[in-house]
Structures are given as structure tokens and as C-alpha cells.
Design a protein around this nucleic acid. Sequence first.
DNA 1: CGTCCACTCCCCCGTTCGGGTGAGAGTTGC
DNA 2: GCAACTCTCACCCGAACGGGGGAGTGGACG
Lengths: 225, 225
Amino acid sequence: MKTNPLNSSQQVADKPPFRVALVEDQPDTRESWQRLISSFPDFDCVCACVSAEEALQVIPQAKPDVVLMDVFLPGMSGIECTAKLKALHPQTPIVMLTASDEDEILFTALESGADGYLLKRTKPADLRVALLDVMNGGAPMTSEIARHVVASFRRGSGLDPSISLSSREEETLILLTKGYSNKEIADQLNLSIETVRSHLKNIYTKMHVRSRAEAVAHYMTRRPG
Amino acid sequence: MKTNPLNSSQQVADKPPFRVALVEDQPDTRESWQRLISSFPDFDCVCACVSAEEALQVIPQAKPDVVLMDVFLPGMSGIECTAKLKALHPQTPIVMLTASDEDEILFTALESGADGYLLKRTKPADLRVALLDVMNGGAPMTSEIARHVVASFRRGSGLDPSISLSSREEETLILLTKGYSNKEIADQLNLSIETVRSHLKNIYTKMHVRSRAEAVAHYMTRRPG
DNA sequence: CGTCCACTCCCCCGTTCGGGTGAGAGTTGC
DNA sequence: GCAACTCTCACCCGAACGGGGGAGTGGACG
């Protein structure tokens, strides 16, 4: 049970090195990562694929201990590739690499079965820690990434541009989509239950629905939860 | 964010120590954490509350830089307390502490606005790192916790093995998520409204929810809408 | 200044919902 | 045959909900 950062212990072991597979289309980036991984004494970059298609061919044979997967790949995306690899070898951890920290990509990547999610600017030492972490059942991600993930639990989802709700109505709707009752919403917003009911009536009118369940359904189908 | 490890209690007024608030009902545990925090030269435990109610009174005045909150508290829970504190001071980071790594508690805690989530068996050094991390906008959590969080995204796309609904219950749920009332569902399935109610009761029990809106919310956050 | 609107809260009323309990028909499996 | 399960339906009851009013405050805008 170790956490992210500080790692000073250098394990010089006689054990066979951990086998890393790399999927990255950009030649210079790929070679750079490959060299970096091979520079770790306890790691071995057993294959460096240039595409998702090649990865699906090679990786099942290579049987790596961990896969480093770029998100953006020509043809099949790294996310789709991750899903397919996970279907074949659910136990092989896959860490996604990306230059972007955009929410939607992150969540899609995690849904596809990625175990960790790192930004490409991750420092070499942190990469090594992350690889060890993920092979140990962890879910390595940078603080930035983790914050996004945690934040996603907070907000039900985004706003709906098609209908203009007032800010108070918006807050009410979001709590509604978490399944709260009128009373619970009133408590969380420090309002009277009657005020919440007022807002709800307006929301129903604006959204053309007649019940909280319908409002939740419409809201969540328009804005992916 | 640089932190100079001074081992003695003599801190010259380079920088005021970080102010930590603690909420924990168990006396011995509370004092243990309090001592631990105070032992860090760059941290100061400015208040140690025995209950959520006290925390809501004291913490707004104490204005800590970070709050450590136990999940299980008599009376108002740590989760509810977190939500209320977050409503007052959204910018003050709150780290939840618990002995359990049960999914439901974790997600509820994160939804309530907690910024980090640590197990009580977290090592002192890791606690300090976590506190620094969360004040810097990070979302500290142990590898175990992070794995659960990531796993929850996976359930979102695939099947949910945790709950098995019968085929009739499944149909009912799907119509529920379209916002239909019991009567409308009954009509569409050519059933009595009482039968629909029966199915719904079973669904609620299996899904651990208490209302149709909550069922819709949970269902749609776990599956693509 | 007056109007509009968001926000807050209140009342009444009928309907819906959720929980508890029970029960008969059909199926599957031991 | 009996147990376990699903599917079906029923009744009761209290709580929650949705719709219809009204009403006061405060800010924005012309």
C-alpha cells in the first residue's frame, strides 16, 4: 500500500526485469520513451508498437507485465485498443499516456479499462513509480488527473444550453439528478422545502416534464453522465 | 510549494505553519492524530472536533488550511458535515479518513465534496504528503482507493455484475429511466400497476435506492445514456 | 419611477409513490 | 414432493410529490 510520490528506494534485484509494452505512433516520442524505460535497470521495453493494430497483434504474444498506451493514434485509437486488449487480458495493467488533460478523454479512457492515466510530461522517476504502482494493483495518476476524476463525482454533469435555467434552478436540478428528495435538496441548499418545490415547478415547466424522474432522465440523456 | 523538513519544534517565522482542523469522535484516535499532525514542524492542528456539529461551529472560525474528517461520526455523519462545510467554504480542502474502503461510502464521500480520501492506516509520512498535495489542488488517495475510483468508471461502460435484475425488472427499470410513471409503465408492459410497483420495490432493494429518481440517476451514471 | 424577474416562502388539494404484507400460478432443480 | 424463485396482483397507510394559487424582497433595466 504505497502512495504516489516520494520514492527513494532503489531496488537492485536479481529478479527478471518487468516487461513493458509501448504503443506510440510518433517515431521520436516512441524511441524516447523506449530508451527511457530501458534505462531503468528493473524494466525492459519488450515491444514498441507504432499503431493500435500492431499492438493487438504483438502484445498478446509479447505478454508484457504492463502496457503504456498513447491516447491519440492514427486509425484505431488508444482507447479502443485498450478496450480490446483488456478483453483479451484483463489482468494486464494498461497506463494511458496523453498530452492533454481534457476531461472527456480521461473519462473515456478510464471507462475503456485503463488502469492509470499519466500526462506525457510526467517525470521519468514518476513514470517508474507509476509502473510499479500499477503492477501492484494501484491506479497511478497525477494530482491534476486525480483532481479531475474527483471533480467528476461532484458535478452530476454539465449544463444544458438548450434550456436556460436560473442559477438556483441549475443547482436544484443537479441535486435532483443525484436522486435527492426535496427535503434533502432543501437542506443542502439551506432553503425551505417550499422554495425547492417552487424551483422544481419552474424546472418542470421549462423542461416540459412532469416528474423528477423524467427530469433526471432528460437531463442525463442530453448531457452524458 | 517547498517544505523544509525541520525536525525540531523551532520554526523560525519563515512561513506560518499550515493550519489543520481535525474531526474525529474517538478520543484516543483523535489525540493520536492530533499529536501526529503537531509533530510535523510545518503543520499545526488548530482544532480537534469531537463531532460534526462541533466542527460546523468551530471550523468556520478556525479557518484552517485543510480539514481531516472522519467518515463515521455519531449524529451527523462526516459526509454530511463535509457537504455543509463545502457549502460554506468551497475552497478549503477536506480529506476524508476511514477504516473502510467500501465503495458506496467512498463515492458518497467524494460526491459530498471531499477532496481526498485516505484510509486510517495511512502512514504518517504519507499523511503529510497527502496534506501538502490536497492544499496544492491535488486529490490524494491511496492506491487502493484510486483503484476503486477507476473501477467505478469501468462499470460505467460494461455490465454491472454487482446487481442482477430479473428480465421483468430490467424492462421496468428501462422504462423508469425514460421518465414514465408507474401507470405508464404498467400500460406499456400490459401489467397491473401493482405488479409494476412490486418490481420497483425489488429494484430499489437491489440497487440500494429509495426513489425512482435515485434509481434513474444511478442507472444512467453507470451506463451511457 | 415603474416593470420585470429571480428568489424566497406559504397554503390547499389530489395524486403518486414507497414500504409492508400477503398470496396464487408457474418454473426450475434437488 | 418440496424448496426456491419469478411473475403476477392486491390492500393499507403514511409520506412525498405535483399543480394551483398568492406574496414579499431585491436587483436590473429602461
